[in-house]
């Protein structure tokens, strides 16, 4: 079933703030095996010009994807999430995410297309800090594969 094209351009209210913890950053860096000291050592991060430890570039996806999940789960949109795969992912950074940030995400459906029975959804998540400053924008392309004929 093709999705309702009128959802293109729709924005969702900002999420509740997510507070970025230094131990969560450490856990993530260890999980990807990245020993860069900017992720775990505040002095090393300061030597690079950052006020505190920073997060690896893809860390913020956990936050933006959760926000996108609220879009995907919108019953009015009618997306079958069990058929969804992650197509593309892109980030544009104004600055790196860092410990102590309280981040909110505002999600917008940029485009909805149907191609060969697949529904393709482009969601943009704008991430702002507690001062309202833009931190990063995340673009997520989700592809809902066509249902097999019974």
């Amino acid at each position: 079933m093709a999705l309702d094209q009128s959802f293109a351009g729709r924005s969702y209210p900002p999420t509740e703030p997510y507070e970025v913890g230094r131990e969560k950053i450490r856990e993530f860096a260890e999980a990807v095996g990245d020993a860069n000291p900017a992720y775990t050592d505040a002095e090393a991060a300061k030597a690079l010009g950052h006020p505190d430890v920073i997060a690896p570039p893809t860390f913020v996806f956990a936050i933006t994807f959760k926000a996108a999940g609220e879009v995907v789960a919108d019953p009015q949109l009618g997306l079958d999430y069990s058929r969804v795969v992650h197509g593309d992912q892109k980030f544009a950074y104004n600055r790196p995410v860092r410990a102590g940030d309280r981040l909110t995400v505002t999600s917008t459906i940029e485009t909805i297309r149907s191609m060969a029975g697949n529904d393709i959804l482009d969601i943009r998540g704008e991430v702002h800090d507690q001062d309202g400053e833009h931190v990063v924008t995340a673009w997520t392309k989700l592809v809902a594969r066509a249902a097999e004929e019974a």
């Binding site: 900017a38 690079l48 010009g49 920073i54 690896p56 570039p57 892109k90 980030f91 950074y93 673009w139």
Partner: peptide, 8 residues
């Protein structure tokens, strides 16, 4: 790592 401006 803060030098990364865009990544896709």
């Amino acid at each position: 790592p803060g030098a990364v401006v865009e990544y896709g």
